[in-house]
């Protein structure tokens, strides 16, 4: 019963919040609603027994990602409304609605693959964080490390892209050489 109530509260709130995110003209509103929506989503994770995931969702998304977005928003001077020219809004709603319809039809159909065996079953009596930790550091160790490298790369890339004059090499002084070829010289 609690699950029922919780699900519908979270479902309705996420839907509304995300609709605001998508439709709002104001960046601040959109971002705030996005952050709120993500908090609500972490609620789903708690309902589903994925405590650790819910925590990560809160920390990474609401904490880190949204912080990044807010910094970016400040950079872009987003207090004023965004002017967007919509060529054919009906098409957008049509496509989106169609997508939603297809998903609803697909997912409301009965699930056929009933007898799928879990490869990493959730062990009873062990906390979720513990179980996730065991699987993540045994079976998913390599993807985990790859993800770590990816995050590192992304971090460096973000620094270089956003930092001032970070695209100029610090170690090598670049000297523009004149072409030695005569033809190239002439063509210059």
């Amino acid at each position: 019963m609690y699950e029922f109530i919780a699900f519908y509260i979270f479902a309705i709130s996420t839907t509304i919040l995300f609709m605001i995110t998508v439709m709002s003209k104001n960046v601040l509103y959109a971002m705030t609603s996005l952050a709120a929506g993500m908090v609500m989503i972490s609620g789903f994770f708690f309902i589903l027994g994925a405590d650790f995931l819910g925590v990560v969702q809160l920390i990474v998304y609401v904490g880190a990602v949204m912080a990044l977005y807010s910094f970016a928003m400040m950079f872009f001077d987003a207090t004023k409304d965004i002017k967007e020219k919509h060529n054919n809004p009906t098409l957008v709603f049509l496509l989106g609605g169609l997508m939603a319809l297809v998903f609803v039809i697909i997912f409301s159909a009965p699930i056929i693959g009933e007898n799928i065996e879990a490869s990493y079953p959730i062990v009873n009596g062990v906390g979720n964080a513990q179980a996730v930790g065991i699987v993540l550091f045994t079976k998913y160790l390599v993807p985990f490390e790859v993800a770590a490298i990816m995050l590192l790369v992304a971090m460096i890339a973000g620094i270089i892209l956003a930092g001032k004059k970070m695209d100029i090499s610090l170690t090598k002084t670049v000297i523009q050489k004149e072409p030695e070829d005569e033809i190239l010289k002439e063509s210059k």
Partner: peptide, 19 residues
């Protein structure tokens, strides 16, 4: 933007096909 729209239409088509 219009590229994105086309891409979206394509995605929808693929999902429809899958369905």
């Amino acid at each position: 933007s219009s590229y994105l729209n086309w891409m979206g239409a394509g995605t929808l088509l693929l999902i429809l096909a899958a369905a």
